[in-house]
Design a protein around this nucleic acid. Sequence first.
DNA 1: CAATATAGCACCGATTCAGTGCTATATGCC
DNA 2: GGCATATAGCACTGAATCGGTGCTATATTG
Lengths: 159, 159
Amino acid sequence: MLQLTKRSEYALIALVHMVDREGEVTSVRELCERYPLPKRLVAEVLKDLSHAGLVISQRGAQGGYSLAQAAESITLGQIVGAIEGAPALTNCDSIASTRDGGCEVHPVCPIRSPVERVREHLWRLFEATTLRSLVPAPHANREAVIQRLRESLAGSPSA
Amino acid sequence: MLQLTKRSEYALIALVHMVDREGEVTSVRELCERYPLPKRLVAEVLKDLSHAGLVISQRGAQGGYSLAQAAESITLGQIVGAIEGAPALTNCDSIASTRDGGCEVHPVCPIRSPVERVREHLWRLFEATTLRSLVPAPHANREAVIQRLRESLAGSPSA
DNA sequence: CAATATAGCACCGATTCAGTGCTATATGCC
DNA sequence: GGCATATAGCACTGAATCGGTGCTATATTG
């Protein structure tokens, strides 16, 4: 349906949360207290991110997860690939590419279906999107705006 | 799973096929003789494209479908939207946007989840991708390369 | 009228996904 | 040491979506 799975969504929320707390550890409990997320599922997702080397896990009391890389070097492609598995794109796997690994007729490739080319475009976009670019604004600023919104929404029965 | 549905894939194949035959009508039978596609499903897809105004249908014998617009003005977003339905993106539909239709804190929008922003990026890419850009090469050229590939793969002639 | 081809609707089987249960293991703190 | 906390691993279930099909009606050509 051309949409990210909930798992990927939770992964993004968790990672964005961790960007605000680089250096600290973030537990699943902490995440689920802050956002309305199913605890067990988030745990499953974080585990996958750990396997993919995007976060570092620390077991035991006071344990949790922290970013394994800088937010600038983690791409959306890595994240989604870690959770949903890399899309079967790899490269042009049509008959033309079975020769020597490369696609010999690449310049005018007549075999590559439009779908493959779309997926390639999409994946390039994902690889070019860093985790950092998904973090809306500095933490303090965000909290301030959220607070302001809460007040205006609670106070005015209009709208 | 972050991939186009088969329906969208069939739509793209059909539309690309029609680009090569602008002005002519293309029937479902013609499409399924040329590509190994399930006839009934392709018919369903073409019907949806017709409803969306992307192709024009002509009923009865010698009938079929033809492009309703130039290949340059049909976007991938329109196609996928017609088949799978527009992703529930519309705009920032968070609490911040319920004020006057527009998102008042857009510049530093703290509510918009990372997922929404990803979908927005993705959709922009789709809106910017024209049907024309998905057609690999001029028709004659393509046929020639296909023929050459068939020969080299078969080893023996007369495939 | 017959053949062709789209229009419309509803249905089924398979796959994928969201979410949970249970148990094991590692760490910090008393 | 013992307990609480927190991740590791595995498997399972219910629900939603998707791929594909059956059947019938309607329009057009000859």
